[in-house]
Simulated assay, not measured.
Amino acid sequence: MNLRSSSQVNNGTDNGKPEVTGSSSAEFAALLQELALQNTSGNSGSPAASLDSSSLSGLLWQQLGGMDEAYNAISGEITETKPTDYEELIQNASAKYGVPVDLIKAVIDTESSFNPNVVSSAGAKGLMQLMDGTANGLGVSDPFDPAQSIDGGVRYLSYQLKRYNGQENMALAAYNAGPGRVNKLGVSNDLELMANLSQLPEETQAYIGKIERARAKYAV
Rank of each mutant, 00 (worst) to 15 (best):
S198D: 13
S57K: 13
E69H: 13
G166F: 01
S53L: 11
E19K: 10
G137P: 03
Q91I: 15
V9G: 01
P18E: 11
Q167G: 02
S5G: 13
S25A: 14
D14Q: 10
G42L: 07
E111S: 05
I108V: 14
T13C: 12
S53N: 04
N15Y: 12
I211G: 05
R4P: 08
G186C: 04
A173M: 06
V99S: 05
S113F: 14
S7P: 01
S5V: 03
D109H: 15
L103A: 00
A219V: 13
R215F: 01
Q62D: 13
E203M: 04
Y71V: 13
Q148K: 11
S50C: 02
S75W: 06
E192A: 14
E168F: 07
P146C: 00
Y207A: 11
S75N: 12
A73Y: 08
A124I: 08
G123Q: 00
E203A: 04
N165W: 00
N189E: 02
S46L: 10
Q205S: 00
N169W: 01
I104S: 09
S113M: 12
V118M: 06
P18G: 09
E77F: 13
A177E: 02
I78P: 06
G126A: 11
N15H: 09
P47C: 04
S112R: 05
Q63G: 13
T79A: 14
A26F: 05
S53K: 09
K162Y: 00
A174P: 08
K105M: 10
A135P: 10
K217Q: 14
A177F: 10
S23Y: 09
S54G: 08
A171G: 03
V20H: 06
S54K: 10
